[in-house]
Amino acid sequence: MAGLIVRRVFQLVLLLIGISFIVFMSMHIAPGDPASIIGGPTATQEDVEAIRENLGLNEPLLTQYFDYLRGIFTGDLGFSYQTKQAVSEAIINRFPNTLNLAIASIMVAIVIGVTTGIISALKHNTWFDGLSTVIALGGISIPNFWLGAILILIFGVNLQWFPVGGLTEPFWTIEGMKQLALPAITLGTGSAAMIARMSRSAMLEVIRADYVRTARAKGVREKSVIMMHCLRNAMIPVITVIGLNFGFLLGGTIITESVFAINGVGRLMIESIAARDFPMVQGSVLLVATLFVLVNLIVDIVYAFIDPRISYE
């Protein structure tokens, strides 16, 4: 296990260097000059040139990149071109909001997804199974910005059950739950559907497996067959899907945060790309990529615990 972690962390470092290079280069290749954005439409050429010089954008590209890389290794993510705020500070301010949203959404997704998935598998080919399959497929087919807008319209404005936007409290407080309810449903629906489908098919496969038949034949009670033999084995692929979806959710927050006025890292990314605020884009992309890799590492470790047959040596 220790070997696995060391190897993965090493891979993560390489991966992050690769990502930082790609992001750095693509931001610099992309048309649009951060200095003219700061200057705005009213700026003269001299104004813009002075800002460029001030930001160090006149240095050679590779010098800029290596300066940046050196900064990362000393824990310095640089300063925002626009607000002059430290990138690390800006990210730390926003990250709790994104994490709150992502966790709330994955919880919504797991509860809905695993429950319906297992019940449909146990009641294979009944009306419940059919209905939940249709709903699950519908769930992945809804554009989530559309769902968000419609939820706001119904539950925020007409019924006034939930606030229409903003996130100021963590998810375990009552106020936080209220604030998160609509965004978490918006973001979690797609994942819930995927998890439901995966749980259903994994469960079906396990139910038909030989050892389950054997257990049944031996006269083990139905409930304990399901609990002891099926669930445990069916959970393995489901956990992969949950892990993958968590990464997917982190990306999905980009749109959901905009719709629900949540001040998170996703929105920071959109704003920074639009403003060509290179250090801010870099910092937030690196954070999301790191999280994605870490979540997958955790998934692998959880695997090993659930299914002792899997080894990574």
């Binding site: 992001v23 997917f248 990306g251 980009i254 990314m269 959109i270 992309v285 999301v288 890799v293």
Partner: peptide
């Protein structure tokens, strides 16, 4: 894979 898809698209 480690790039959020929508972000990759935005960069491109």
């Amino acid at each position: 894979f480690a790039f959020p898809g929508i972000l990759l698209a935005m960069l491109i």
